[in-house]
Each structure stands twice: as C-alpha cells, then as structure tokens.
Simulated assay, not measured.
Amino acid sequence: MHDLHRIDELGGLFLPTLREISEITGVAISTVSRVLNNDSRISEATKKKVLRVAKKLGYPGEISSGRGSKVVMFFVSNPHKSIESDEFFSGVQRGILRGAGSSDIHCLVQSIRSKKSFDESLIPLDLVEGLIVGGIPMPDDLKTFLSAMKIPVVLIGKYSGLENLASVNNDNVRGGYLAANEIIRYNYSTVTVITGPRNVSTFADRLEGFFKCLSENSFPTERVKIIECNSFEERDGRMAIERHLRTPGNREVIFCTTDWLAKGVIEALQDRKVSIPSEIGVIGFGGLDFCKMTSPRITTVALNPYLLGRIAVTMLQELMEGNSESKGVVFVEPFLMEGETLRGEK
C-alpha cells in the first residue's frame, strides 16, 4: 500500500521515478513519460494502466491536469546504474528533496547512463515546470536539448555550451589548489596525478587549481607525471597503478582527482605490499563517506553535495517565480578532510 506522498528521511516531498512505474506496468520508460506528457499517440489502454499505477505510487490528480503544486525534475546522466549508487548525486538529491519538500514542490527523479544517448521523451515537458540537471559527463544530445529549453533550468556543475544557464558548482579550481597545497605542506618532492578525462571540465578545473598552486610555490613541473584515465572509477585507479607503477620514489605522492580513483590506487598498492603513507602518499578528491572507513583513512578534498542540491532547488524556484537575477553561477567552497594517507616532514 503506497501513501499519496512518500516522504524521504529528510522530509523531502517527491514522486516515484519513471523507472519504478515502468517496472510495475511492464511498459517502456519512454512510453511512461509519453503517457505523463499526455501524448496522443499512446493507446487508451496503456494510458489507463500507467496512470493507475502512477496514482497508486503517489501522483496526485492535480499534477496530471497541470494544476496545484509545482512539479520539477532532477535529471542525472552518470556512469552508475542509479542515482542511489552514486554517493555524490544521491547527496545532491537529498538536498533537492529537502528544499522541495519545504516549498511544496513535487520532484520527479530520473537518470540515464552517461554513455547512452539521451531520449527526449524521458523529460515530460507538459508536466514539469523546471529542471535540475547534472552529469559526468553530459551527453552532447542532452546539452542540445537543454540549450533550447523554454522552462527554467539549473545545472549541477559546469558544462561547455551551456554557460547561459543558471548553475551551482563545486569550486573545483579551489579544490585542486587545496590538494596541491597539502602536498607542498608535507614536503613531497615527486607527484603522480591520476585523473579522469581532461576534456571534462570537472577534471580540467581541478588540475588548473592544482598546477596553479604548484607554480606559485615554484614546484618543478618535471617532477610531476600525469596519468589520464578513460573514466574515474575504482577500476581505473587500479589499472593506472598496474600499468604505470614503478618502485615508489623518495617522497612521492599520488593525487587522484576522484575518491574512487584513490580507492582503486590504494587497493592496488596494498596488493603490491607498498606501505601507505610510509612509502608513498595518496590524496583524493570528493570527501565520499568510504574515505573514513578505508584503512588507512583517505585524505581528500571534500565537497558538499547536499548543499549543492539545496541551493539548486532555491535557484530553480526563484527562476520559476520570474526572478531573472537567479540566472547566474554559484560556487560552493570545498574543504580538506584529513585522513591517514599523507606523511611527511612538515
């Protein structure tokens, strides 16, 4: 038995995902979206089936007719199977739901795998009045779709070609600077950087801040090696070590542009009986919860995805109310989360 509105643990008011309705009805996700979008091409039998399940799961009648509370969508493109399996975007989602719940805004949630093409029918434009969108990376066809939007859009992150849209971002340049500053503070003399694709602005910005700090401190660039991975997952960190690791040099440290990369690096080093941090140091980026549970605990530059979500839904609400001043860029400051993977002669 489903309640009319399901409330998450933070009090956020939200609607079931299109995937949930699809799984229960046996109807394709794109068809579910078309039904909610009142597409005339869908048969009456299919419409009735989908709308009956949607109502049981918590779609109030006034939403289908376009009246009552505002409806928005949080749409994510990422390499994980779901938002819930991505600690960063699930944190953003919690912030959005809390903010939406306190403003009587209903929030649809939908995600796609970032390597798949974008299907426009997944976003029911006759139903939603605003969008919050994020992704690492974001498919080009989704960018094209967003650039033509007539409804308010707030981006989570920075994306080339979408600079005219409102966005809330991690200050990745500042975060990269903090990571390099910590390496210098510990007096490391050799650095290996393991990063996701440098054509993704998230990683480009982190590297920009990192090398800015090294330059300001006259750190020799010939002592820095960069390993660029196709993605930024744990397996990529492992592969980077397996393919490129030599005997660790004196006072060497590895900077990973995500915590997942750092986790894979640490596991691969431990498999090779390399002691961390006595033989080599590691610093990550993200501040994900598992950094506190690994052995040793990972030193990392921490982000605040929950705050990103809260700010995003506030910006979107203001845009929906006609406040054009909210169509700007907001940066959220990262901070250093100390662990046990750095050791030096401070």
Rank of each mutant, 00 (worst) to 15 (best):
K47G: 08
V50T: 09
S30E: 15
A100C: 14
V35P: 01
G66A: 06
S33W: 00
K55D: 08
I42H: 03
D86C: 11
R94I: 00
S103D: 12
E87L: 13
I24K: 07
R52D: 15
L36V: 11
I21E: 02
R34Y: 08
R34T: 03
S64N: 12
R34E: 12
S64F: 14
F75N: 09
E62K: 11
I105Y: 01
I29C: 04
V27W: 01
R94A: 12
G26H: 02
G61T: 04
F75Q: 08
R98A: 10
D39A: 08
G99V: 10
F75R: 05
V92K: 00
G91V: 12
S43W: 02
D86R: 07
V109D: 03
K81G: 08
L108F: 15
G61M: 00
K56A: 11
I29V: 15
G26L: 03
L57M: 15
E84R: 08
K81S: 13
S40C: 01
F75T: 10
E87N: 11
I63S: 10
E87I: 13
N78Q: 14
M73V: 12
E44H: 05
A54L: 06
E62T: 12
L36S: 08
R52A: 12
P79S: 12
G58V: 03
G66W: 13
V109N: 10
I24C: 03
T25V: 12
V27A: 09
V50C: 09
I42M: 03
V72A: 13
K56L: 13
V32K: 01
S30A: 15
Q93D: 04
S22V: 06
I63Q: 01
R41D: 10
L97N: 07
Y59C: 05
V35A: 08
C107R: 00
D39G: 06
E23G: 00
Y59W: 14
G58K: 05
S103H: 10
K48M: 06
G95L: 05
R41M: 08
E87V: 13
H106I: 02
I24H: 03
Q93C: 07
V72K: 02
S43G: 11
I96H: 04
E84A: 15
A28R: 06
S77A: 15
M73Y: 02
D86T: 02
E84N: 11
K55N: 11
F89C: 14
I29D: 01
I96G: 06
F88R: 04
S30G: 11
R67Q: 12
T46E: 10
T46H: 08
E84C: 04
R94P: 00
I21F: 06
G101N: 09
V76H: 07
K81Y: 06
K70F: 09
L36W: 06
L51W: 01
S69H: 09
L51A: 05
F88T: 07
I96E: 02
A54N: 05
G58Y: 08
F88K: 05
F89M: 12
S43D: 13
I83Y: 03
T31E: 09
R67F: 07
Y59I: 15
I42C: 07
E62A: 09
V109I: 14
E23Q: 15
R52W: 03
N38A: 09
M73C: 10
R94N: 11
R34H: 07
I96K: 00
T25S: 14
S69P: 06
H80Y: 14
I21L: 04
F88L: 12
S64Y: 14
K56W: 05
F89D: 10
S22C: 07
